[in-house]
């Protein structure tokens, strides 16, 4: 059985004038299907860079990344865009909902972008997800009319609506209070497990780590521990 994500010796360097700044210095890891993994590490450790590369939003300087057995480092930009649309879902720290669209329209948007889904099917899927995240009564609201937790629940619904293989969540609880953050993590965990979706969190929130199957610790661009548990993380 193939892994959901496999990274082999990834190096990512940024150029600042004449200076080369290494962000990742040879990261290798494997994430299994349906696994809920947290990439943890202090600020500047390279966890967001790693998430960007796994999320096909950035390319490694060296090394190989396989998602669902697809070598993404060699894909064209257009193919990567299509890949993101069909196989990945994203949850952001600041929710990143489209402010001019309603809750329903925000969740429906990825389905519209996929283009081959009938309107009735779109409606069914969106309504089902909004029901599951508890926002069925807010379907016509604009994002700014919702609380932070409600917005993040909409973002979770939007990430799941295309039934992706992998969800990437970048600090999903950073802008939420403790209780709401915990609710969101529970929600993502529950829904991902129900749907057999792999989830990769980038966070240093212990509540998120507590829900993870596994924690991959990164420091100075290197994986220092691939199999930590929440109580073992420094």
């Amino acid at each position: 059985m193939h892994a959901a994500v496999e990274a082999r010796d990834i190096v990512k360097e940024y150029r600042l004038g004449k200076q080369v700044v290494p962000a990742l210095r040879g990261v290798s890891l494997t994430i299994a299907h349906g696994e809920l993994v947290v990439i943890a590490g202090p600020s500047g450790s390279g966890k967001t860079t790693l998430l960007n590369i796994i999320g096909c939003m950035d390319r490694p300087t060296r090394g190989e990344v396989f998602i669902e057995s697809e070598a993404i480092a060699t894909l064209s930009e257009k193919t990567l865009t299509r890949f993101r649309l069909r196989r990945l879902g994203f949850v952001f720290q600041s929710f990143n909902l489209i402010p001019v669209l309603s809750v329903f329209q925000n969740v429906e948007l990825p389905l519209l972008l996929q283009g081959n889904i009938r309107a009735s099917e779109r409606r069914r899927r969106v309504d089902e997800l909004l029901e599951q995240v508890g926002l069925a009564s807010h379907r016509t609201h604009r994002p700014l009319e919702l609380s932070g937790g409600q917005q993040q629940r909409v973002a979770v619904a939007r990430a799941l609506v295309t039934r992706p293989a992998l969800i990437l969540a970048d600090e999903p609880t950073a802008n939420l209070d403790g209780a709401t953050g915990a609710q969101i993590v529970n929600l993502i965990g529950t829904m991902a497990r129900t749907r057999q979706t792999t989830v990769v969190f980038s966070t240093h929130d212990p509540r998120v780590m507590a829900k993870a199957d596994r924690i991959i610790e990164i420091a100075d661009g290197l994986v220092v521990d691939k199999n930590s548990r929440a109580d073992e993380v420094r």
């Binding site: 999320g55 939003m57 865009t81």
Partner: peptide, 11 residues
């Protein structure tokens, strides 16, 4: 940010 989000989502 909105345009970046759209691009992330596959636009």
């Amino acid at each position: 940010r909105e345009l970046g989000t759209l691009r992330t989502m596959g636009c």
